[in-house]
């Protein structure tokens, strides 16, 4: 049993989380739903920090609270505000949901207690990651070691999921389906016009820091990609989508999406050519830890490229669909 301040904060945040979830269920307006959803996301982020999952918290903040919110805002429509979203759930839904919940509650009584270090989760696989990754891979952030090397293939899959989503949105909202309209951007707002150009370089600098500091602290390609994408999207919002197209054409955004996947995949091919298994970075350099460093650096760059360009591509596609503009 944890009796520290940590547990108290944890329980407090859980209460806040539950309240925001209930508010979300009862909420009637689409716009409020999205705002509450962001609040919910940030609360769960704080919980992740309390539970030592700093990398996860970072990702949830960037992806769950950031990108999701932007995407939701892109698809809501003023007409939706008239209807009532909340209806009391019907008997079937209630029974199904409650039965699932009760089944789970029944199962919790065999689950390990919060923080108990003597359970299989903490004594089997993970001991090698925690004890040997310092010598086998040689970077301090164990999450990065596991993510990029021990389970590097999952991360390739994850990048491909992002790429698949980008491709799918591209197909669904392709140029042929869209109504072409481009607004003036937010350039007409003088505060934004003055402040944002000064902030964007800092955002990009921060993205680079997160990208290359991921070996030592929380962060890495995913978070950096999202931040970089956000910076570029702000630039696009601020100026005008047409000027944005002058900086980088849609064709190249799409190519960038695929390019990151290729960088990642080809690192694996390189290690096969070097005589190792797929994604075995040890063979990429003279010493095995140097190889691991190099491999992780390269694949994180691949991740960053795909994520950043997918964010841009999503933004361009949803923006072109002109949901909020008309």
């Amino acid at each position: 049993m944890i009796t520290t301040i940590n547990a108290l904060v944890d329980m407090g945040l859980l209460v806040v989380l539950s309240v925001s979830a209930l508010m979300l269920v009862r909420c009637n307006s689409p716009l409020n739903t999205i705002i509450l959803n962001a609040l919910y996301s940030f609360t769960i982020c704080s919980l992740f920090v309390i539970m030592d999952a700093v990398d996860v918290a970072f990702t949830e903040a960037a992806v769950g609270a950031g990108i999701s919110t932007v995407l939701f805002l892109c698809v809501i429509h003023p007409d939706d505000e008239s209807g009532r979203l909340f209806v009391w759930p019907g008997p079937l839904a209630t029974v199904v949901a409650l039965a699932t919940g009760l089944l789970l509650v029944f199962g919790t009584f065999d689950m390990p207690l919060y923080g108990d270090p003597q359970v299989p989760v903490h004594t089997h696989l993970v001991t090698r990651f925690l004890e040997d990754s310092g010598t086998e891979i040689g970077i301090p952030n164990v999450v990065t070691s596991v993510l990029a090397s021990y389970r590097g293939y999952d991360t390739l899959g994850e990048v491909v999921v992002v790429f698949t989503a980008g491709t799918s949105v591209l197909i669904l909202l392709a140029a042929g389906h869209a109504r072409q309209d481009s607004g003036d951007g937010l350039i007409s707002n003088s505060i934004l016009r003055v402040v944002m150009p000064r902030i964007i370089p800092l955002v990009i600098l921060f993205a680079l820091y997160v990208q290359f500091h991921g070996d030592y602290g929380p962060g890495g390609g995913f978070q950096a990609g999202v931040i970089l994408g956000a910076g570029l999207i702000t630039l696009a919002l601020l100026t005008d989508s047409r000027i944005m197209q002058g900086v980088i054409s849609e064709r190249w955004i799409i190519r960038g999406m695929a390019g990151g996947v290729l960088v990642y995949g080809l690192v694996g091919v390189a290690s096969m050519l070097g005589g190792g298994k797929y994604l075995d970075y040890s063979v990429l350099a003279q010493s095995s830890t140097d190889g691991q460093h190099l491999g992780i650096l390269l694949i994180e760059i691949g991740v960053g490229i795909t994520v950043a360009f997918t964010m841009l591509s999503l933004f361009v596609s949803f923006n072109r669909s002109g949901q909020t503009g008309d």
Binding site: F163, T167, I254, R255, M257, A258, G259, V261, L262, G265, L266, V269
Partner: peptide
Amino acid sequence: LVAALCVL
């Protein structure tokens, strides 16, 4: 990888 090349 061929899928990525197609998009490229």
